[in-house]
Nucleic acid binder design. Structure first.
Lengths: 334, 334
DNA sequence: ACAAAGTGGGTAAACGTTTACCCGAACGTT
DNA sequence: AACGTTCGGGTAAACGTTTACCCACTTTGT
């Protein structure tokens, strides 16, 4: 059906070896023959079969990436950064969505490995349920976890220092005069959820702040933010500030507060985490903790390449420093 | 290095043919041998090499998809819907990002084709510059365009009826009492840009409305929305309504209006297009035209499967009806 | 002038599967 | 008893590349 290198060779009147050599440049070929070959490929519209090539070569010049849910706006940011990095070295990226489902995540990981990707970037769905897939994958291909991670699986990891980030947010609102802080975040189901929660609790304790009831834990979605905000409003009195586990939650919180007539930042301060695209466009623009996604991508590829080069090198876990981005949602003159 | 089916066969004391047969179920094998084989795979941690399988079988049970830019929040919605559809039939989806660059888009398309995907879903970057890649791709694999399309390339297409959608938005704001409408959209670089603009102009003309200067055309980004809103505010008097080419633009417009003290919907109405995740969370919640993304995904896969089944079937272009979602950004009592 | 080294080409063996084909045994059916 | 048929297994040929190896012919150095 499709034209093969054999067809090209035939048309050019050379052997397949010669055709392959001019097409890949793996060895010099005389100008006349080379010309004939590229002429033939043009005439036949030949495209090399990457599957056959991968089979023979044993590598594919492509990376795989699996994210929990591409609809979560933080992941596209990181995907794009990784993509850009990879492009610098001419490699392709195949992206898969796990739909927040560890079973599906496993399928995707195996599918990519089966496709002989040269390495795998994965943001695991769950700090626990993703463990098995990762351990399995690790035996088959170089692998680096990004952002979230699962414990007990010894792989490289790069992400942000969640604890430091939340601490920044807490200290910032406190410096704005807040004393009673509420926390709306996600269950400690993912490492991000766990560490951000921990960071909040530590900071509050260290600063000796009164606690405003237990943290409200749901999922990293705007929907959960709305619900949680509803509960906060239902309490007898508002906290001074609401520290959210990510920007989506914060946006949900802002929306519900607005609907209920709670004014931000006048009545209460709100912070997010991640600095997604819409954080600056929220109403009011959201103070948040920015993840250095370009640096994360950079380290991610660096780790992966190092792992490819030496599968037995000691594993590395790199927590990059986030930065605080102050916007109107915490601008109050006390 | 990695274990092959040959290792499995050897360990189980059977031929590779038998091993293959029990692994794929392509032909019945006696229970004892079957048991020995699956035992062996377990012990060796065997995973079939999908590359070799694809080479032999000629298909891969996977689809490819290329989007202009995964950071644009509309695309994840459609990607997720396609993913869900595909999952029903147990197929994998490999997603690529073109970073708004037709050259890169071409690379991605070719990479996917080279990987022998069974079909390709593509949202082209540009109505003109993507033409060559598409024409080339069409010769190699079944292909369906989604959302945007390039003309002059005969492929199946499914998307929304842009014209009808914009018309709905226009008629809606007019029914709210607006007369002077501004349009902020993207250059007619993509089919969506072109058709939405056309729809606006037609509707305005048909309803005999006064035009509020020429349409403001940039890109489908919030940033452009901000800029355009700035220009609108700089004019001597505000229009009654701003009809935006998509939700991102609208969100940018809302943000800039807010910053400049223009009240929506009190001073001016604003509408978007797409109904992305954040439209409902914007301030005020955004009236917009919702794309039926689940149906789009459904038709997309249907078209693709039909094309795979019969490459010579007549091509189809399916424009689905959008629906108007009225929220506060157009709620005004005149 | 003759060996050594280099140059430019071809032949064929991989890569890991699946599957067309073959073969022997067991099992009816006349 | 002779003869299909089915059943369950193996052998080996593909799939489309790349590349190790080989060979014939220069070129170069002595």
């Amino acid at each position: 059906m499709a034209t093969t290198i054999r067809d090209v060779a035939e048309r050019a009147g050379v052997s397949v070896a010669t055709a392959s050599r001019v097409l890949t440049g793996s060895r010099p070929v005389s100008p006349e023959l080379a010309e004939r070959v590229i002429q033939a490929t043009r005439e036949l519209g030949y495209r090399h079969n990457a599957v056959a090539r991968a089979l023979r070569r044993g590598h594919t010049n492509a990376m795989g990436m699996v994210v929990p849910e591409i609809g979560n706006p933080f992941f596209p940011t990181i995907v794009e950064a990784v993509e850009r990095r990879l492009q610098e070295t001419g490699r392709d990226l195949f992206l898969c969505d796990a739909q927040q489902d560890p079973d599906l995540e496993r399928r995707r990981v195996l599918a990519l490995i089966g496709r002989q990707v040269d390495g795998l970037v994965i943001v695991p769905v769950s700090a626990t349920a993703s463990g098995a897939s990762l351990a399995e994958a690790k035996g088959h291909t170089p692998l680096v976890q990004v952002d979230r991670y699962v414990e007990g699986v010894d792989t490289d990891w790069v992400g942000v220092d969640d604890t430091a980030g939340i601490t920044m947010a807490v200290e910032h609102v406190v410096s704005c005069g807040a004393r009673r802080l509420a926390c709306v975040s996600a269950t400690p189901d993912s490492s991000a959820g766990r560490r951000r929660l921990l960071g909040f609790q530590e900071a509050v304790m260290r600063l000796g702040l009164p606690t405003d009831g237990p943290p409200l834990l749901g999922s990293f979605t705007a929907e959960w933010g709305r619900v949680a905000a509803g509960r906060i409003v239902a309490e007898k009195h508002l906290p001074d500030a609401v520290v959210c586990g990510n920007d989506e939650i914060a946006v949900g919180v802002l929306g519900e507060f607005r609907r209920r007539g709670v004014r931000v930042p006048l009545d209460v301060l709100v912070t997010g985490f991640d600095d997604i695209r819409f954080a600056a466009l929220a109403d009011p623009p959201l103070t948040t903790v920015r993840q250095p996604h370009e640096r994360i991508a950079e380290e991610c590829i660096r780790l992966l390449d190092a792992r490819i080069a030496d599968p037995d090198a000691p594993i590395q876990r790199i927590a990059l420093e986030p930065t605080l981005v102050v916007r109107e949602s915490t601008q109050r003159l006390w």
